[in-house]
Simulated assay, not measured.
Amino acid sequence: MTRTHITIAALVLLACASGASASASAPYQPHNPITAHSQCAISAAKAGKIASQLYGGKVIDVKQVNANGRTAFRVKLLQPNGRIHSVLIDANSGKPLQ
């Protein structure tokens, strides 16, 4: 390899490594555009916090869904044992749905 190829390869590796470490350490930020425009008593972030406090684990995803005619948030939690636990949080009361 030439010096140019080595330099480019090093820059690519550096860019990938710095991007991965930044995203791995950043806290979860909900990015669901539906949530921003709907009339919910709680936010997606609040639903994630409620689910994490009730069931433990790290919030990895929050989506607004329709659960039997009710607006809810589906929160996915990464448990310490590596499993993913999904829970529904009512968007108006903040209570878990069965």
Rank of each mutant, 00 (worst) to 15 (best):
F73L: 13
V65D: 09
R70Y: 05
Q64L: 06
R3G: 08
V75D: 11
I6A: 14
A20C: 04
N92L: 10
A10F: 00
N92W: 05
I34V: 15
I50K: 11
Y55E: 00
V87C: 14
A51Y: 00
A15T: 03
N92C: 10
I60A: 06
Y55K: 05
Y28Q: 15
A47D: 00
F73N: 06
P27Q: 15
Q39P: 01
I8A: 10
S52D: 06
G82V: 12
F73Q: 01
R3P: 02
L97W: 04
A72Y: 00
S23M: 14
L11F: 01
Q98E: 05
G57E: 03
Q53V: 00
D90K: 10
I89Y: 13
N66C: 12
L77N: 10
A47C: 05
K58W: 02
A24G: 07
G94E: 05
Q64P: 01
K49M: 13
R74A: 11
Q98T: 01
C40F: 05
S25N: 10
H31T: 14
C16L: 04
T7A: 15
L78V: 04
M1T: 15
Q29G: 08
S23N: 08
P30G: 07
Q79K: 15
S23F: 04
A10E: 00
Q53C: 07
C40K: 13
G57R: 07
G57N: 08
G56V: 11
K63G: 07
I34D: 08
A44W: 02
K46V: 02
K95T: 04
Q39G: 14
T2Y: 03
V62T: 13
T4G: 14
I60W: 01
A44Y: 01
L77A: 15
R70L: 13
G56P: 02
K76V: 07
S93Q: 10
A51S: 08
K95R: 13
V59F: 06
V65W: 07
P27I: 13
N92Q: 14
I84H: 13
T7Q: 12
Q29M: 09
